[in-house]
């Protein structure tokens, strides 16, 4: 499960429609109460959450594509079964999240259509290709690792349905990270060629993974509002640093080199990374990453090719409903 750049937003919509109700709402948040679907909430809170949760859902669904790429080529039955289970989990996570987003008043169809039309974002990490089997290891170890860092605080987010969905997701996510690390460990303990494959994969994914935490704090829009509403509990840079500190010793254990020659440990033990290339991030967000077009095309194809299944299920349900009405009338 993957949240990233979800707190960057369009325009300023922080209007307050009713000062008293807004104050009462903020007081509930400050008291650490959970907001539930039928409760009054400011329109901007609803809008921010709808955007964040649905983009999170789209990320899960699009995230199935780079990994699905390797299911038929997994090196053993054990790896194949695990990867299949992981991809099924991503689908499940997408569905929990869509359900949570819908409680805010948008229909599933609207949310999915916005993604297929290219109007809704998903995590830019999935616009990178999975070129080798080692990439499946790296995704589990680093992409899911970064996602866990982002998601654990969301289990305490002020919106009840989102927080509950995140609790389910986080429980399942730890299997993903461990299976990824195991793949990396096996490669790193293998032949020179296998270890080189693992290193090459880390080289390609390291920086895009750091970008998953979103823009640096000084340019992150709307973070203040999200923090005030307790949707966001830690800043992008705080989470990024936490992730780097947790990951460096793991890379050392694997015997891999993080592709950042400038990285060093400071006096407090934090691993300080070099400047991130944000132009690349912006390019990928703008639709110009290596796989943006492929990913959207694959989602559209799946949606179109599934249309007959949805139509048939609806027609069958309608026929059955008509029959039971007729029987009841007899």
């Amino acid at each position: 499960m993957y949240t990233q750049a979800l707190n960057s937003s369009d325009g300023d919509d922080r209007f307050i429609e009713d000062a008293d109700r807004a104050a009462a709402f903020q007081a509930r948040i400050d008291d650490d109460e959970r907001i539930e679907p039928n409760d009054w909430m400011p329109a901007a809170y609803r809008k921010t959450l709808t955007r964040q949760i649905s983009q999170h859902a789209h990320s899960e669904i699009v995230g199935m594509l780079p990994e699905g790429n390797w299911i038929t080529r997994a090196p053993s039955l054990r790896r194949k079964a695990a990867l299949l289970a992981k991809v099924q989990d991503e689908c499940g996570h997408g569905l929990y999240l869509y359900a949570a987003a819908e409680t805010l008043g948008s229909s599933r169809e609207e949310l999915v259509d916005a993604m297929l039309a290219g109007k809704a974002k998903y995590s830019s990490i999935f616009n990178y290709p999975t070129l080798t089997w080692a990439d499946i290891g790296t995704i589990g170890w680093l992409v899911d690792g970064a996602a866990i860092m982002n998601q654990i605080p969301l289990c305490r987010c002020s919106y009840g349905p989102y927080a509950r969905a995140m609790i389910r997701v986080c429980k399942e996510e730890s299997f993903h990270q461990r299976q990824g690390f195991e793949i990396m460990l096996t490669l790193c303990r293998g032949t020179d060629e296998q270890k080189a494959m693992a290193q090459n994969s880390l080289d390609r994914w390291w920086w895009p993974v750091l970008m998953m935490f979103g823009p640096p704090d000084q340019v992150s829009q709307h973070s203040d509002t999200s923090t005030k509403w307790k949707i966001k509990r830690f800043s992008n840079d705080e989470l990024r640093q936490k992730f780097v500190d947790a990951t460096v010793p793991q890379a050392q254990f694997l015997g891999l080199t993080i592709p950042d020659p400038g990285m060093k440990q400071d006096a407090e033990g934090h691993w300080r990374y070099s400047e991130i290339d944000w132009t690349e991030f912006k390019q990928v967000l703008a639709g110009n990453g290596p796989c943006n077009r492929d990913r959207l095309a694959a989602r559209r194809k799946a949606h179109d090719e599934g249309a007959w299944v949805r139509d048939a299920a609806a027609a069958y349900a309608e026929k059955r409903a008509r029959r039971s009405m007729a029987q009841a009338a007899e």
Partner: peptide, 17 residues
């Protein structure tokens, strides 16, 4: 949680998955 399905039978199967 919740899910979408055309009828009760499909809803049960989807809930299982």
């Amino acid at each position: 949680g919740s899910l979408h399905a055309a009828d009760a039978t499909l809803a049960l199967q989807a809930a299982r998955d």
